[in-house]
């Protein structure tokens, strides 16, 4: 959990978005994206931009990999990510995202994400995601092993 919080702090764009780690376990992670005026995608409705929710999911997925791999440390660049926007999140409400790495193969990880409005974590998701990431093992000096 602490490692995840610290790692998020080093990712400038995620810090700019105001992302926050709520929990981080081997089975999965939970992150929060605040509703903020400068993250709005449709100025007529005040709904958050899909890109901000996408960034939340991508980051949550990467962190789910790290938690699954822990205590080993690898970097896991995204191969692909698909997001489905099931319905628009209510303006003014934060979005919560759970991500789980459900399969760790030798070279690839498979991750699912689900996002809800804050306070409605048992209700209808606002978005779901599905992604693959490639595993890059690090050597002792922290460089990518060939």
């Amino acid at each position: 959990m602490d490692v995840c919080k610290r790692s998020l702090e080093t990712v400038r764009h995620s810090r700019m978005l105001g992302l926050e780690v709520l929990s981080a376990e081997e089975e999965g992670v939970r992150l929060r994206l605040p509703w903020r005026e400068d993250l709005v995608g449709n100025p007529d409705t005040g709904v958050l931009h899909g890109g901000a929710v996408f960034a939340l999911m991508d980051h949550a997925g990467g962190m789910a990999n790290s938690c699954r791999l822990y205590p080993a440390v690898e970097i896991t660049p995204t191969i692909d990510l698909r997001i489905d926007h099931l319905h628009a999140p209510t303006p003014g409400k934060a979005v919560i995202c759970d991500a789980t790495c459900y399969r760790l193969s030798a070279h690839v990880t498979f991750v699912r994400m689900t996002a809800w409005e804050e306070g409605d974590e048992q209700g209808e998701p606002v978005a779901t995601g599905q992604a693959t990431y490639t595993r890059m093992k690090l050597d002792r000096s922290g460089r990518v092993a060939s």
Partner: peptide, 15 residues
């Protein structure tokens, strides 16, 4: 996104 490379955040590019 990645501070050491440095590389853009995948989410920023997607957005």
């Amino acid at each position: 996104g990645n501070p050491t490379l440095p590389a853009l955040h995948g989410g920023a590019v997607a957005g």
